[in-house]
Computed example of a mutant assay.
Amino acid sequence: MSITIGAGVNHWHGAAAHSSLTHIAITLNNDEGNAAEWGDAVDDATYQDAHAQLEGTPLAPVSAGRDQLGDFAPLFAELNDDVLFGRVWARRAELGARDRSVVTVCSLIASGITDSSLAYHLSTARDNGVGRDEIAEIITHAAFYVGWPKAWAAFRLAADIWK
């Protein structure tokens, strides 16, 4: 992923509590000859405060149900988009997005759902801070409960997503 930060924008970034971050910065001098100013490391309290604020932000609306099934099954599409992703996933104070992703991934694997639904939720788990080593450990642990073939299928998807 590549992110561009404009001139004069004070920002910070880093890994989530249980994931890693590789940071490669390329800076150029501006017209006045000033390069980027690097600040101090963010302490745990500041990180936790920012994370808590982020957890309170609304999620982007989901329209997959309406887009794919709206004409055929409008009630199911509404429940998928507005209830599951609109209300249940929005309850981040009760269960954070990262943990919710882990539960969802494990549930899909246990159910034998190893199609695009699992791929979507593995990507979401990665975006919610589940690291490569963590997902490998999660699937390995789940393998003893859900079955070896289901774990193999999940590993194939996860390996592609965490490349």
Score class of each variant (00 low, 15 high):
residue 9 V to L: 12
residue 49 D to H: 15
residue 90 A to Q: 02
residue 122 L to A: 13
residue 135 I to D: 08
residue 80 N to S: 11
residue 132 R to D: 05
residue 50 A to F: 09
residue 126 R to F: 02
residue 78 E to Y: 10
residue 56 G to N: 15
residue 107 S to F: 00
residue 87 R to F: 05
residue 41 A to I: 13
residue 128 N to W: 04
residue 114 T to Q: 06
residue 113 I to H: 06
residue 93 A to Y: 00
residue 112 G to V: 01
residue 82 D to Q: 11
residue 81 D to F: 01
residue 69 L to Y: 04
residue 150 K to M: 08
residue 10 N to D: 03
residue 30 N to R: 11
residue 56 G to F: 08
residue 154 A to H: 03
residue 91 R to Q: 08
residue 134 E to G: 08
residue 94 E to Y: 10
residue 75 L to A: 15
residue 142 A to T: 08
residue 105 V to Y: 11
residue 107 S to L: 11
residue 119 A to S: 12
residue 52 A to T: 10
residue 110 A to K: 14
residue 13 H to S: 04
residue 14 G to V: 01
residue 31 D to T: 05
residue 128 N to Y: 04
residue 158 A to Y: 02
residue 145 Y to A: 06
residue 7 A to T: 06
residue 42 V to H: 02
residue 32 E to T: 12
residue 65 G to M: 10
residue 112 G to A: 02
residue 100 R to D: 02
residue 84 L to N: 00
residue 85 F to C: 03
residue 161 I to H: 14
residue 27 T to R: 13
residue 1 M to A: 08
residue 150 K to F: 04
residue 67 D to C: 07
residue 100 R to P: 05
residue 110 A to Q: 12
residue 22 T to W: 12
residue 39 G to S: 08
residue 78 E to A: 09
residue 76 F to W: 05
residue 70 G to Y: 01
residue 61 P to W: 11
residue 51 H to D: 11
residue 23 H to F: 09
residue 65 G to F: 10
residue 89 W to V: 00
residue 90 A to M: 04
residue 6 G to A: 09
residue 119 A to Q: 14
residue 65 G to T: 10
residue 12 W to C: 04
residue 29 N to G: 15
residue 69 L to N: 01
residue 19 S to Q: 07
residue 106 C to W: 01
residue 21 L to E: 07
residue 10 N to F: 01
residue 33 G to E: 14
residue 69 L to R: 01
residue 97 A to W: 06
residue 103 V to G: 12
residue 42 V to F: 01
residue 19 S to W: 04
residue 12 W to I: 07
residue 92 R to I: 04
residue 110 A to H: 13
residue 18 H to E: 13
residue 146 V to L: 04
residue 10 N to E: 00
residue 129 G to D: 00
residue 69 L to A: 10
residue 81 D to A: 08
residue 35 A to T: 14
residue 142 A to R: 03
residue 53 Q to N: 15
residue 46 T to P: 02
residue 96 G to N: 09
residue 102 V to L: 15
residue 152 W to N: 14
residue 102 V to I: 10
residue 67 D to G: 04
residue 24 I to L: 12
residue 157 L to K: 09
residue 155 F to C: 04
residue 122 L to H: 11
residue 14 G to T: 10
residue 29 N to F: 07
residue 86 G to N: 08
residue 146 V to H: 05
residue 39 G to T: 06
residue 148 W to G: 03
residue 130 V to M: 09
residue 142 A to V: 04
residue 149 P to A: 03
residue 150 K to H: 08
residue 106 C to R: 12
